[in-house]
């Protein structure tokens, strides 16, 4: 390790300890366990700053926070899965003795044997770890993939396909009753007829040209090419709009973190 790295690390450690002491002194008399609480808040702040330091470049603090995060989150997810699914849902249906051991209520039922099948399939999946019998795990995968492929086939055919088509049946011509507020104050959100027709035409042409853009088996030349070109324009304008829309939301996330650092850790009254 380089000398400068060591100096920086030592400096950060000293600062961290100092911050802990100062925080503990600030909390003394206000809360029980103030030493522990001061440590926890300081540690959270340390991790927050370690992650933010990534913006400058990769560094040992970020690496530490990253590896800690990976370990803790994997264990968290595993514990939650174990208690909620295996102990919470599976064991009460499989075995009375195990239910007693885990202090959950045994649920008797005529068809509880059916829960042995996924257990067997799950164990087959673990065969992956075996060098010679790893291929058996494909049976479990095939079950999952087959079931969900069938499910998704129908789901998307209905929601993304049939429903979207029928939603595009919009009136392009309406009995003319004037332009509404369009010319008087350029109100695009007004429900004037011109605006409505403009919107409907845009939706119709946008959807059509968008679909044409996604044609793979025909060269995009001539009339077809122009329609496809218009399609990609509409897509790009849309992507821009949704990009712009997201910016504000993302910045508010940062504000939340900065508030933590300044108020909870450093104790500023903001």
């Amino acid at each position: 390790m380089k000398k400068t790295t060591l100096i920086i690390m030592a400096g950060v450690t000293v600062l961290f300890l100092l911050s802990w002491i100062i925080k503990a002194l600030a909390l003394e008399g206000m809360q029980e366990d103030y030493i522990k609480k001061a440590f926890l808040v300081t540690f959270s702040a340390f991790l927050t700053l370690s992650i933010l330091s990534f913006l400058y470049r990769d560094n040992p603090f970020y690496k530490f926070a990253e590896h800690l995060f990976v370990g803790v989150s994997a264990a968290f997810w595993m514990s939650m899965g174990f208690w909620s699914t295996i102990v919470g849902n599976l064991i009460p249906r499989l075995s009375q003795n195990l239910s007693v051991f885990f202090k959950v209520h045994y649920i008797p039922g005529d068809f509880n044997f059916r829960f042995y099948i996924p257990v067997i399939l799950g164990l087959l999946l673990l065969m992956r770890l075996s060098r010679n019998y790893g291929w058996i795990s494909r049976w479990s995968l095939a079950f999952i993939v087959g079931t969900t492929a069938g499910l998704n086939f129908i789901r998307y055919l209905r929601s993304d396909f049939i429903k979207q088509i029928s939603a595009t049946f919009v009136p392009l011509l309406v009995d003319w009753q004037g332009t509404g507020h369009f010319f008087s104050n350029l109100d695009l959100s007004a429900s004037g007829q011109l605006v409505m027709m403009l919107a409907n035409w845009t939706i119709f042409l946008g959807v059509m040209s968008g679909i044409i853009y996604f044609f793979f088996s025909k060269e995009h030349t001539g009339m077809f090419g122009r329609a496809s070109r218009f399609g990609i324009w509409v897509l790009m304008i849309t992507f821009g709009a949704s990009f712009g829309y997201t910016v504000m939301g993302r910045i508010s996330l940062l504000v939340g973190r900065i508030t933590f650092l300044f108020r909870d850790w450093l104790g500023f009254n903001i």
Binding site: A167, A199, T202, F204, G206, V207, G210, I211, T238, S242
Partner: peptide
């Protein structure tokens, strides 16, 4: 408006 058109075209394609 254009957002809805583009999303719909993409969704039909994705579907």
């Amino acid at each position: 408006v254009p957002n809805m058109a583009a999303k719909r075209a993409i969704l039909i394609g994705i579907g």
